[in-house]
């Protein structure tokens, strides 16, 4: 009975992956069908070109910064929010529902919304700052152009949209923690901070690693919001690995190069996921 499932998975998952791996070793361009040729001496051309491409390294560096800042900020905010929500005794269901609202928007809409917020001439943020007298009419801030403000704006939009996911996971974890431990700590005279630091945080570790893994993989795939807000620019200042891969493969029709870039990214992502899961296993052993 396993065979049909196995064959199905191979066809649905394995074939496209193997095919894209094959394509990554060819100079294939979408509008030149004859370019889908594997030649051993040239098989690694796409990979060597990418490794020598400053834009690739720039986009990889940007992605790492974006990922690190976004996921960590999101985690600390979600941790705080989840602890506050866990204290709420009445109306928690309504608050949880309200919290989920940003998740209901398509990323592309969030991108448009924040692009407008941060528009230097017509945007909400600059107009508010001008009205409050914080900046002058002639000194409006080019939020989406300036470095590093452009990246910060994208991080804000991403966190706004995805904070609920991590908050809900951490809230679920917090609510499932055994109350006896806290009662024992109360008997021992532990302070609120000591309870949080020595009981809540360690016991939440499995939930934390699951949330971090899910969000890290998700953030690393960021495309829509960046595409709409800055499209990786200006001058590659917010170029991420997937916006660059998309530009190469879809707009420039260089499928071979785009596939090679995707595979490098996938290998990095798999390594990162393995690391996080190992941490998850360790945290469970401690538990």
């Amino acid at each position: 009975m396993l065979l049909p499932s196995f064959v199905f998975i191979i066809i649905v998952t394995g074939f496209p992956l193997l095919y894209s791996l094959y394509v990554s070793f060819t100079p294939y361009e979408l509008l030149k069908p004859n370019s889908l040729i594997f030649e051993l001496p040239k098989a690694l051309n796409n990979y060597t070109r990418l490794l020598n491409d400053p834009v690739f390294w720039k986009s990889l560096g940007n992605t790492i910064i974006f990922l690190t800042v976004t996921v960590n900020l999101e985690y600390f905010l979600a941790l705080g929010l989840s602890q506050l929500l866990a204290q709420v005794t009445r109306g928690q269901a309504i608050m949880r529902t309200m919290l989920m609202i940003p998740m209901m928007f398509a990323p592309i809409l969030v991108g448009f919304q924040f692009r407008w917020f941060f528009n230097s001439n017509l945007g909400l943020v600059n107009n508010a700052l001008v009205s409050l007298g914080i900046i002058g009419e002639q000194t409006r801030i080019a939020w989406l152009v300036d470095e590093p403000l452009g990246m910060i704006c994208i991080i804000i939009a991403t966190i706004w949209m995805n904070l609920p996911v991590m908050t809900i996971i951490l809230l679920a974890g917090t609510l499932s923690l055994p109350q006896e431990t806290y009662e024992a700590a109360d008997v021992d005279g532990a302070s609120a901070w000591q309870k949080f630091r020595f009981i809540t945080l360690p016991l939440l570790a499995p939930f934390t690693y699951i949330a971090l893994t899910i969000r890290s993989l998700d953030v690393a795939r960021a495309f829509d919001i960046v595409r709409i807000m800055t499209d990786g620019g200006p001058a590659r200042r917010t170029e991420l690995i997937w916006t660059y891969a998309g530009r190469l493969a879809i707009e420039d029709t260089k499928f071979g190069l785009g596939s090679a870039m995707s595979w490098i990214t996938v290998i990095i992502s798999v390594g990162f996921t393995v690391y996080l899961f190992r941490q998850l296993v360790k945290s469970r052993i401690v538990e």
């Binding site: 528009n119 230097s120 001439n121 017509l122 002639q138 409006r140 801030i141 080019a142 939020w143 989406l144 152009v145 800055t230 620019g233 200006p234 001058a235």
Partner: peptide, 24 residues
């Protein structure tokens, strides 16, 4: 020198036209 808008590198057709429309 501020002859063109500070967010010019992010402008495409609609934003560019809006600058003229606004009288800027």
């Amino acid at each position: 020198d501020g002859i063109i808008a500070e967010d010019t590198p992010n402008l495409v057709w609609d934003g560019d036209a809006a600058n003229f429309c606004n009288g800027d």
